[in-house]
Amino acid sequence: MMRGRLREGALLFPGISWLFVFFAAPLAIIFVVSLGQRDAYGGAVLDKGLSFANYLRALEPSFLPTVANSLKYATATTLLAIGISYPIAYWISRHGGRRKGLLLILVMLPFWTSWVIRTYAWMIILRDNGVLNGVLQATGITHDPLILLNTDFAVVLGMTYGFLPFSILPLYVSIDRVDVSVVAAARDLYSSPGQAFRHVTLPLTMPGVIAASLLTFIPAIGDFVTPDILGGAQTTTIAKVIQSLFLSARDWPFGAALGFLLILATVIGTVSTLRILRAEVIG
């Protein structure tokens, strides 16, 4: 009995140690740093007394527009990603046939190139004298270059592009698991294709939709590369603020406090979303 327990525990050991070293411990460090103060050279000082002053500063209303901006980008990205991914995942599952594996590899192909390089590629495509404007002007569709770079549009586009594989894969898995005969049964029971989707396919793939949403929303809210490269200097998101507090403003304790709050908000948001949706979907 005891030995069985130990053996089961041994299976969890690698995962738990990983989480401890790379998640729990850094989180604890961030939390401790967030209670400290900034010294003259930008280092974090802990021996002058610990306080929640940084948290009070983080909750000041002046940060609200930044938070709202982050939420706006993440929400738009999530909605767009689901809207694009669902039909793709559906098509691969239902019509992919023997090429399913190949199509899924194609979905993941962008991962073979660095995230930052791919984002720079979008910059080349979107800038005033970029690829897209070049094509539009050469074909006479537009005369003057469209301003695409450094807009909300560019940020959401870049993020959606980047996180698409994260939403396609869970959606594919959940759609592929829906028995086609269940959809046929709905059709047989007087449902149009649209009704069969709404009453059968969609509810049955809701777990996939939730997973895809979380896997898009969470990295989108923490992403500082895309808003920085494609959104330009004037675009502020909470992730960008945290990044600059650590790297340029050198105010680690305040950055740590913001970072800790972001993680906390994400965890609470994720858990409560899952709770609500699970209660509603599974009922």
Partner: peptide, 20 residues
């Protein structure tokens, strides 16, 4: 005619009950 417009109903091989 699509299935939803036909006056027939089917009992499927593996029942195809709606799991949700």
């Amino acid at each position: 005619q699509p299935p939803e417009r036909r006056p027939v109903n089917t009992v499927f091989q593996n029942y195809a009950l709606f799991p949700h």
